[in-house]
Design a protein around this nucleic acid. Structure first.
Length: 265
DNA sequence: GCTAAATGTTGAT
DNA sequence: TCAACCTTTAGCT
């Protein structure tokens, strides 16, 4: 279940399992038979994540490009691997680990030049050291498009998905319909810093939690799923801060959630 | 057991 | 605007 934090976590886990090792690559799907052959027997040299895109370098030239989409999953484990069955797009097997990829939107072998094109298209990623938040600010501050739609565009900020969109706007009191050019510089700076913090925590925990402990029903210990978000999927439930029912509406083809009092027009 | 919806994107209409 | 991709889970019956 992938926003940017999932992909960065995966880069870390796949690196720990395979980096520097020769791996066997296989597939049970005809559509990736050629791709798997290109990877089979190569050394996993390096991993790179940008937004929701994962890149794995096999040997000197080949990059595997993976995008999990809505329900793709990459599972990493210790050998022995489970029986290979069903729509298994890619299996990697190293000395001690295996990894299975199922249901991705994209799984393809690309050249360095093709990889570079993905990076050029994607906006700054709060989880990357090289990210320049000013590039996102340039887009947002000149746009008449609603900020709730802008945040979903991967060319504006890479790695944000439907959860982080709703939650970051809530945490900064920004009404999602406000035009991008109506967002103040200080609001954007604070939101970017917050995104970095929240998404790093997401990589560490392997899931998204945006609530502060004092705003959860159980204030100690780790957040339950119920307690993880301020507004995401909480339609009609009382806002954790003011009690007003959370609203929902489709924006940028996804369900958007917000509190009309904490995020006034 | 069945159905709908889901943390996403692309390409056709 | 919508179907397709193809998996998991929540919420029904």
């Amino acid at each position: 279940m992938p926003e940017g934090h999932t992909i960065h976590r995966l880069a870390r886990d796949l690196g720990a399992a395979f980096q520097g090792e020769q791996v066997a690559a296989s597939t049970l799907m005809d559509r990736f038979a050629d791709g798997a052959r290109l990877l089979d027997g190569q050394v996993v040299e390096r991993l790179d994540a940008h937004g929701k895109h994962l890149f794995v370098r096999f040997g000197p030239e080949a990059w595997l490009h993976v995008h999990l989409g809505l329900y793709g999953k990459f599972t990493v484990g210790r050998l022995p691997a489970p029986e290979a069955k069903g729509a298994l797009r890619l299996r990697l097997v190293g000395r001690e680990h295996w990894a299975d990829l199922r249901g991705p939107t994209a799984c393809e072998v690309v050249t360095p030049a093709e990889k570079a094109r993905f990076h050029a298209r994607l906006g700054p990623d709060p989880l990357r050291k090289d990210a320049d938040p000013d590039r996102a600010w340039d887009r947002i501050s000149r746009s008449r498009v609603a900020v709730g739609a802008l945040l979903m565009q991967q060319e504006v900020v890479a790695g944000i998905g439907n959860v982080y969109r709703a939650e970051i706007l809530y945490r900064h009191g920004i009404e999602p319909h406000r035009e991008g050019r109506g967002v103040h510089r200080e609001e954007w700076d604070a939101s970017w810093d917050d995104l970095r913090t929240l998404m790093r925590a997401g990589v560490r925990a392997g899931r998204i939690v945006t609530t502060r402990p004092e705003h959860r029903s159980r204030r100690s210990g780790r957040a339950t799923r119920e307690d993880s978000f301020y507004v995401y999927r909480r339609t009609g439930l009382p806002c954790r801060l003011c009690g007003t029912p959370v609203l929902t509406e489709v924006m940028a083809a996804r369900n958007l959630y917000w509190c009309p009092v904490c995020q006034p027009r």
